[in-house]
């Protein structure tokens, strides 16, 4: 087993291939994370303000989240008119997933901002948009990062499904291993996906600490 692994990794070209796929995987999984967050914040802001939008947006988010990834990758081109095997399908689908997952935490987090804090900010002369950016959003960061952490793990895992449609990333290691009945690439792929998820998670935790110095000062986690 270990012999197989070291033989597999011994080849310079294989290693280069793996690195390329890792890079592509990062792109496939993390670009949607950024897009999803950028979508979810304004959507959550809108949903939190208008009761009707709240019900409908959260309802749509809920339904979107039920769609299995493979099905989503395949249906996306029909919706946005891209090539059926283009990587952008995976990026678009994962972006939508991320946004769908994050809208609710954003709304929850905004709901949780104490009324007296908002009242104080308004009394000091903040206009709604400025207040949102200066007061509500920062206070929402802990809940938002909790959501982003879930989304990142999910994205990193789901991006590998794209390999079934010939879209690279670490998933390609699974399909090639399966086609040749050869375990090492599969093992390397699983380990790299797990490691990537762990690293991204740690980065997100660090980011949250950086963005919420008051939480540390208060002795909270």
């Amino acid at each position: 087993m270990l012999d197989d692994l070291s033989r597999y990794l011994g080849s310079e070209s294989t290693r280069q291939l793996i690195v390329d796929q890792l890079v592509q995987h990062v792109e496939l999984a993390l670009l949607p994370l950024v897009v999803g967050v950028a979508l979810a914040i304004p959507l959550g802001w809108l949903a939190q303000r208008h009761p009707l939008l709240r019900t409908s947006l959260l309802g749509v988010a809920n339904v979107v989240y039920t769609v299995p990834s493979l099905a989503f990758f395949v249906v996306i081109p029909g919706v946005i008119g891209t090539q059926i095997l283009a990587p952008v399908n995976v990026i678009a689908a994962l972006s939508v997933y991320t946004a769908a997952l994050l809208v609710r935490p954003v709304v929850d987090a905004l709901d949780a901002v104490p009324g007296h804090v908002i009242a104080a900010a308004t009394a000091m002369g903040y206009r709604p948009l400025r207040r949102f950016l200066a007061v509500e959003l920062p206070l929402a960061v802990p809940v938002l990062t909790a959501g982003v952490r879930v989304a990142s793990v999910s994205n990193i895992s789901l991006a590998s499904v794209g390999a079934l449609l010939g879209i690279g990333g670490l998933g390609a290691l699974f399909t090639s291993g399966f086609q040749t009945s050869y375990l090492p690439p599969i093992i390397v792929g699983i380990v790299l996906v797990l490691a990537l998820a762990l690293v991204v998670d740690l980065v997100l935790v660090g980011l949250r600490r950086l963005l919420t110095p008051w939480a540390r000062a208060g002795g909270a986690r």
Partner: peptide, 18 residues
Amino acid sequence: NAMRALPTLGLVTFLFLV
């Protein structure tokens, strides 16, 4: 937590081969 990060396709192909 670790299991949540497991790639589905990876696990399926791995178990199939094993």
